[in-house]
Design a protein around this nucleic acid. Sequence first.
DNA 1: ACCGTGACGGCGA
DNA 2: TTCGCCGCCACGG
Length: 112
Amino acid sequence: MNQETEVTPTAFQQKVYAACSRIPEGKVSTYGSLAKSVGCGSAQAVGQALRVNPFAPQVPCHRVVKSDRSLGGFFGQSSGPEVKRKIRLLEKEGVKLDPSSRVLPAHMWNFT
DNA sequence: ACCGTGACGGCGA
DNA sequence: TTCGCCGCCACGG
């Protein structure tokens, strides 16, 4: 019998996942804004949480990008094939990147 | 209990 | 404008 190797996310992680789930489709948020939502002053800490997100992509962590308007990372990879998958998901939800600079348009920065 | 690492952010040169 | 450094927070070893 397989033992349930179920990891229990910390309270902090669950808050991040919850906040991330609140991001509407077609919109994106930033790690920093999300951090504020969970009462944290560090965007990096949020990244750590999403990095181990066991609920992905159910939890739309792919809608979280850098304040820099760049994509950030996906599944632990700052760049690579997984990040391309992230772009793919966003485009499917109506979020298109600028083909030149590969950054997100500022039109969707309405969600905190 | 301590240190290093990390899907970041802001400021300075 | 671009590149680099430091600072914050949370987590694993």
